[in-house]
Design a binder for these strands. Structure first.
Length: 493
RNA sequence: GCGGGUAUAGCUCAAUGGUAGAGCACCGGCCUUCCAAGCCGGUAACGCGGGUUCGAUUCCCGCUACCCGCUCCA
């Protein structure tokens, strides 16, 4: 696909999202707000289905009695729902505070426009005159150091003062780490086990862009998987492959999806392995992929940080960062977060594998992947263009539509009766407005997998037609068997 | 943060210094027995704030949002 059609596709997807009520700009009647997006009536169903599928597949549907193929043991999986605002020290110990707070200096000089870290001016080079540091060259026009804050700051309590400063979480993961002991003490889990969480996170992205891809408020689906250090590489590989397969199983199966292992130069200072699941979003430049999920082998970095304090890498590996007086720059909780294995009588700090997914990015990828234009023959056999969202039935906002063929002869009443029946199990729609072809197309644009049409034969013989979204083929099904037929076609969802 | 572009109805577009039309969509009606039919009627817009002007959707300035290219991307 070249750039032009990529952009066309984006415009069509964005337009469809607005037209059908998937995604709206936040606060739109006030002019919108950059980096924030709302989900409309169909969008909220899509996103909920996505999160439900993740939760079902990762947590409640997990079999913790069977070892995955090739792995040393079964594992347990539990969920958690922690707060968006946490103790400010969490972010200092985790490293986010330092990482997300830079004092930056911009050069306003024409032809320069460079940005420097205020604490590194002396070791930086002026782009216009590399023999000098920023500010030394005559043309330099530096701003005062300005705080560059990637975390949203807020105040706890009604009184605004520095003592009450806190932050909206930039990731959900820390809520899991700080509850590690609680889960261990109460959930009857032993290593290896995972803790899953879905929730909102907030980052002051420098450049919100690409529709919902880089938003300032977004939702994450994260797992922190705790295991014995010597088994961590095997579990890392397991999670990397399993998470990739999850997207494929839900329909992200084109060559736009890829799994990419990070090179050693890309790894964070604590990570011994990271892979990204990436999608070639149509709005990205040709050949570029955007991250849907990162699977990181984080070693014992996180639990150690919350025990000892903020860690940095030194010659021996990770060490607590010290201040001028030799004290921890940011102290940890001081609590013991190690694990005691009763069988082996060993005490150690578990290693962590972190599959961290963006729910909004996944929703967007599924929308882009599902958007299809094809041609359907009309009654004269002439191909007519159609827009269809080929969403996986589990993700589709509406599972089926019940349609009376005409608005007469008792067909609406019969269709409504059927609609009420199916409602008990699925999110189904009822529509009697317009011609039958028009209504099929409407459902196609919303991604509804099946349409159930009530006609005279329904009244006479107790059968309906079920029309397939992707192939547009129809078969007759007895109303008695309709529920089980739909269950089979929809995968019980 | 820098530069460029764009902003008119739900969507896609048009016209205009004298407050705006169309197609599609949507709603009501007629018709209609399976893939965007037709007919009648209807709802609905100049992103926000200033300025110039008798009068601004139109010209100018600022803001906001989106798009493109940089910068940034833990």
């Amino acid at each position: 696909m070249d750039m032009a059609t990529g952009r066309e596709l984006v415009e069509k997807v964005v337009s469809l999202c607005k037209r059908r009520g998937f995604i709206f700009p936040s606060s739109e009647i006030y002019g919108g707000l950059g980096g924030f997006w709302d989900y409309g009536p169909l969008g909220v169903e899509l996103k909920r289905n996505l999160k439900d599928a993740w939760w079902r597949d990762m947590v409640t549907g997990h079999d913790d009695t069977t070892a995955p193929a090739g792995l040393p043991s079964p594992y347990a999986m539990v969920g958690l729902d922690t707060t968006i605002i946490m103790h400010p020290q969490v972010w200092k110990a985790s490293g986010h505070y330092d990482l997300f707070h830079d004092l930056l200096v911009d050069c306003r000089a024409e032809g320069c426009k460079a940005r420097f870290r205020a604490d590194q001016l002396a070791s930086s080079r002026c782009p216009l005159k590399p023999s000098k540091t920023p500010g030394e060259h005559d043309a330099c026009d530096l701003t005062e150091p300005r705080e560059f804050n990637l975390m949203f700051k807020t105040y706890i309590g009604a009184l605004v003062d520095p003592e009450s400063e806190s932050y909206l979480r930039p990731e959900t993961a820390q809520g899991i780490f700080v509850n590690f002991k609680n889960v261990l003490a109460t959930a009857r889990v032993r290593l290896p086990f995972g803790i899953a969480q879905i929730g909102k996170s907030f980052r002051n992205e420098i450049t919100p862009r690409y529709f919902t891809f880089r938003s300032r408020e977004f939702e994450q689906m994260e797992i922190e998987f705790f295991c014995r250090p010597e088994e961590s590489d095997a579990w890392y590989t397991f999670w990397r492959d399993r998470r990739f397969a999850w997207y494929v199983a839900l329909g992200l199966d084109s060559d736009r999806l890829r799994l990419r292992d990070h090179g050693s130069d890309e790894l964070s200072h604590y990570s011994c392995g990271t892979a990204d699941i990436e999608y070639a979003f149509p709005f990205l430049p040709r050949g570029e992929f955007g991250e849907l999920e990162g699977i990181a082998h984080r070693g014992d970095f996180d639990l150690r940080s919350h025990m000892e304090g903020k860690l940095i890498r030194d010659d021996q590996g990770l060490a607590v960062e010290l201040d001028d007086r030799g004290r921890p720059r940011h102290s940890g909780s001081g609590k013991d977060l190690s694990y005691f294995d009763e069988e082996t009588q060993e005490r150690f700090i578990p290693h962590v594998i972190e599959p961290s997914a963006g729910a909004d990015r996944a929703a967007l990828a599924f929308l882009c992947e599902a958007y299809t234009e094809d041609n359907i023959p009309d009654e004269k056999g002439v191909p007519q263009p159609r827009v269809v969202l080929r969403l996986h039935p589990r993700l589709a906002p509406v599972k089926a539509a019940v349609l009376p063929l005409i608005r007469k002869e008792g067909l609406p009443e019969a269709a409504q009766e059927l609609y009420r029946q199916l409602k008990a199990q699925w999110n189904v729609a009822y529509d009697e407005k317009g011609s039958i072809g028009r209504r099929y197309r409407r459902q196609d644009e919303s991604g509804t997998p099946l349409c159930v049409t009530v006609d005279r034969e329904t009244l006479a013989a107790g059968t309906v037609t079920v029309r397939d979204r992707d192939s547009t083929t129809q078969i007759r099904v007895s109303t008695k068997e309709l529920t089980s037929y739909l269950a089979e076609r929809l995968g019980c969802y």
